[in-house]
């Protein structure tokens, strides 16, 4: 059983998933990601300029998902990797975002570690590959 995220729904977030398209609030200047209808920071701004995030950031927190407990759409990946890390990353531009970490360092993940966004397959459903961002140690 997948996440019930339809293909049209996935497609609507392609700019965010493929190239980290964020929005800069025209009222307070801060960057929202993922997009909001009202700025997450000033909570009043509703006008935004599109801005492409650098993908660079640091690990704010992390976990390692054990294979057996992975969501069904990630079970193939879990079977292959045994377990996989998920990180909460604080991006250079300010927002935090959650994603998988690929090529984790053998010495272990640490809070504060520098990472960069990479483009990867997230999962496949209905024969359709869902691409999106993950992170990788710099």
């Amino acid at each position: 059983m997948g996440a019930h995220i339809s293909i049209p729904m996935y497609r609507r977030t392609v700019p965010q998933r493929y190239r980290l398209a964020g929005q800069r609030c025209t009222a307070c200047g801060r960057v929202n990601f993922p997009p909001k209808a009202v700025c997450r920071y000033c909570r009043t701004g509703t006008g935004f300029d599109s801005v492409r995030l650098s993908g660079r950031g640091t690990v704010y927190s992390y976990t390692v998902i054990a294979g057996g407990g992975a969501p069904p759409e990630f079970s193939e990946e879990a079977r292959c990797k045994g377990s996989y890390p998920v990180v909460l990353v604080e991006l250079e531009e300010g927002p935090r975002i959650i994603a998988q970490l690929v090529d984790p360092p053998e010495e272990g993940i640490t809070v504060g570690m520098k990472v960069e966004a990479v483009f990867r397959r997230i999962y496949e459903e209905e024969g359709v590959i869902r691409y999106g961002f993950k992170f990788r140690p710099v």
Binding site: E77, V102, R121, I129
Partner: peptide
Amino acid sequence: MDIDEDTVTMAVEAAS
């Protein structure tokens, strides 16, 4: 290639 890579993801890496 890792399980989450294919020729398109590699293409994005090189092209970036």
